[in-house]
Design a protein around this nucleic acid. Sequence first.
RNA 1: CGGGACGUGGCGCAGCCCGGUAGCGCACCUGAAUGGGGUUCAGGGGGUCGCGGGUUCAAAUCCCGCCGUCCCGACCA
Length: 504
Amino acid sequence: MGICRCTIACATKDIMADDKKLTTRASDFSAWYNEVVLRAELADYSPVRGCMVIRPDGYGIWERMQRTLDDMFKATGHRNAYFPLFIPESFLHKEAQHVKGFAPETAVVTHGGGKKLEEPLVVRPTSETIIYAMFAKWVQSYRDLPLLINQWANVVRWEMRTRLFLRTLEFLWQEGHTAHATHDEAEEEARKILGLYRDFMEGWMAMPVVTGQKTEAEKFAGALRTYSCEAMMQDNKALQAGTSHNLGQNFAKAFDLKFQSESGDEEYAWNTSWGVSTRLVGGLVMTHGDDNGLRIPPLLAPTEVVIVPIWRKEEERSRVMEAADRVCRDISNWERRDPNALRVRVDTRENLKPGAKYYEWELRGVPIRMELGPRDLDANQGVLVRRDTRAKQSVSLDAIAEEIETVLETMQDDMLSAARDRREQNSHRGAVSYEQFKELMEGDGAFVYAGWCDGEKCEAQIKEETKATIRCLPDEEFRSAEAPSRCLLCNADATTEALWAKAY
RNA sequence: CGGGACGUGGCGCAGCCCGGUAGCGCACCUGAAUGGGGUUCAGGGGGUCGCGGGUUCAAAUCCCGCCGUCCCGACCA
């Protein structure tokens, strides 16, 4: 609820209006986020603590993400497979760092069919162990490599604090797992996927990311190196949107994944694993949403255009409805079932005034609203309203499909630019004193690029004192023109530049 | 798991301090009118007051326990 600044005379009216309004991002970002997710019907709470139901509008976004990513994985030679939900508990213990990282947050099945199991089964928190155990059976020779597998699955991590989409006990994701003959091939794969993720996040989600490498403290449990895509949300906190790991030979050694090389030697394979999850939907909300609700970038919007018919008299009603239906069919290529055609729907509800519909579709984030009334029909036009800018334009019905395509493309680009501008405005480079850094982190938050001595003590102490962490050691294109020379905390010579921020 | 707030028709809340058997707004249903930025009027349906105990003639209200949600810490895609 917003604050009423009205006089008593209009208090009632204002409260009514407020009842329909979202908490603003500025007043309480977390509350705003929850309200958007619930009221835009992306998800709902489940009876089980920390779990959520993904509703059709939320799942529709995920489906579009899935389809796009799946195409990208296939185009780079990966194939889908499915590995089981249950993993023998002993498997998790075979890689020392891995079990250390995941054991505390696993759900374990101890009974089945009414009997106690001989060996408890872990509900997968991630599938490295079962997958590399299977890879070991399948790989004999270098000719079997590389082995490029992806799976779409659910995983369970018993988190303490949960947030819709951002951190739930169960979530949906894809996990890619590959085996290679050499370290360099694995490294190339891990980097290739990181780039693929970035292309998806920027090109489809209109969510700019900083790519880079995780520090030892932040890397995946069991990995040699972890790379990540870090996006800035509107509260200036970082969201780790995707990770790609070079696992080295750690899992190969733990699961005896060996192959005979060209020269006849027996060698351990080199692995990578990488994933993005339904967390991306949360990232989408927090990147683009505004105080009127969700804003979905056109390429991922389950509905791109909603047509709102407008009429006064009965005669107008039939005329407008008929036209709306016709336009919908024309521009959506409905009868041809063309998957690339526009995703359009007509809001035929008769119990709501047009204005109410406008608010609702804005809340739901549909990119374009098309208002179609008698005056428009007389002029053979429709009114297009962009969700991102709320700008209106009248367009001839003869050219409406083309114009919509143009507007959608423009919106997609504009949303990425706006998100990037916002990130840059809240990013700080150059010499930042630790005092300034603390002020930034205590205040509005920020991305801060600063020098780091590579010392885990400095990293830990800064985290302790400011809650900010090194999100990544940025890839070259994100590094400052002039490399920082001093460590943010200890002032010793900096060995690298680090991106600091508070994180989700 | 520690600190704080909250839990009352679908949603948002009042009632609780000072026990007496539940109310408001929105939403929903019916009818009529209305319809280019949150329609109006009339009629109507819906709640064992988070769950479980206790105190009492009587509990939404007082006491104890538990569960859940949100915020803040320790853990994390």
